[in-house]
Simulated assay, not measured.
Amino acid sequence: MSLRRDIRLLHFQLRNILGCASRTRAFFPSHGYVKEIDPTSGRSRKAMDFDTEGDMQVSTLTVTNDILMVGCFNGDYRFRSLHSENLSYTEGRLTDHLSGITNHVQVYPCRRSSAPLAAFASNDHGFRVVDLSTNSILSEAKYQYPLNCTAISPDKRLRVMVGDSVDVTIADAETGETLQDLEGHRDFGFACDWAPDGWTVATGFQDKSVRIWDARMWRRNHNGAASPLAVLRMEMSGARSLRFSPFGSGKRVLVAAEEADVVNIIDAQTFETKQKIDVFGEIGGTAFADDGQNLLTLITDQARGGLMSLDRCDAGAEDSYNYLADEESRQDWSRRAPKRHEGSGPLGAFETVTHRRRRALVSGNLDPF
């Protein structure tokens, strides 16, 4: 835990002000600038200075390996390259609407090129995609409610959106067209994430629930109603930040940070167990570092807040089923060796569909299909 008293959380509902570029580079807004901190040493420095702009109010922040991006309360944004020591940044404007708060931003590579794109969810009901290589707006769409969080699918074709509505919106990532509305939540939504597997989606709403959806079949009920894979209950309040762990980091988990005091680390394979981390103070966001081996949590309490770093203790665990977890697998393998079929057929335990069809055709007694 690196205690800090310079964290600035300005919005009572938005909780996406922590970004992480690597194990030693984390970012959060402070008073008049964005601060960069090394969680391993506690050393910090300015990463983006707003001294010439007066009281710059940052509402959301995100970081990739090479870009630092912040969204602001008055409908504009700032970004800079992390590969340069120069702290100068590029400015842009999304809207002049009086309620143009930038609620959420996600930076990702374009599906058809290597150009970096930024997807902005705004409080004026607008969703905009900006090409950062030219600093120009590529697309703009309006929805029936303010958008609080969005997440794009790994193949860059779909996008999940949540906001001041009880429904979850699934939209075309390029056109913004609404493809599905998923019912079931009972309050407004502030968090969502799309898992690296491509089909698992998590949404967090103020009804104190996190719902897990399967993108391969949004509507699973016989009557066509939306049906989630699982419904998870939070401890004290709704989830404000949702993060799936990256592939290759060990057992897959979903981190659901509540508005204050509680971080839930959920088994993202079964969604049946979780580890609860109790903290003190409002939570400004979570981020994975070091390819998922570290979990950073920003706590904004003025007296006891700071940057909390948790290390995984199951490093190297398989993402899929591990036979060592089976008690029988601990016995001598030779005692459990599969038996052969009569004759010189293949091993029964490893018999493929092709082998079965071939054996059925030879016997003439079974339908090979």
Rank of each mutant, 00 (worst) to 15 (best):
G238Y: 04
A239M: 02
A239F: 01
R240N: 03
L242P: 05
F244I: 06
S245F: 04
S245E: 06
P246Q: 05
F247L: 14
G248Y: 08
S249F: 05
S249Y: 04
K251Y: 00
R252E: 11
V253G: 00
L254V: 00
A256I: 02
A257I: 03
D261S: 10
D261E: 12
V262F: 09
V263H: 04
V263W: 02
V263L: 02
D267Y: 05
A268S: 09
Q269D: 13
Q269T: 14
F271S: 03
E272W: 00
Q275S: 15
D278K: 13
V279G: 00
V279L: 14
I283P: 00
I283E: 00
G284E: 07
G285F: 05
F288L: 06
F288V: 02
A289I: 04
D290F: 07
D290T: 06
D291E: 14
Q293M: 12
N294Y: 09
L295P: 03
L295M: 06
I299W: 03
T300Q: 07
T300C: 15
Q302W: 09
Q302S: 15
R304S: 11
G305A: 04
G305Q: 03
G305W: 02
G306F: 05
L307I: 08
L307C: 02
L307W: 02
S309Y: 01
S309K: 12
S309V: 15
L310D: 01
R312C: 01
D314M: 11
G316F: 09
A317T: 11
A317R: 14
Y321N: 10
Y321M: 12
D326Y: 11
D326A: 15
E327C: 10
E327W: 13
E328V: 13
E328K: 13
E328W: 12
Q331K: 12
S334F: 03
S334A: 11
S334V: 04
R335A: 15
R335Q: 14
R336A: 13
P338Q: 12
P338M: 11
P338R: 11
R340Y: 13
R340G: 14
G343T: 06
G343E: 08
G345M: 07
G345P: 07
G345F: 07
L347G: 13
G348N: 08
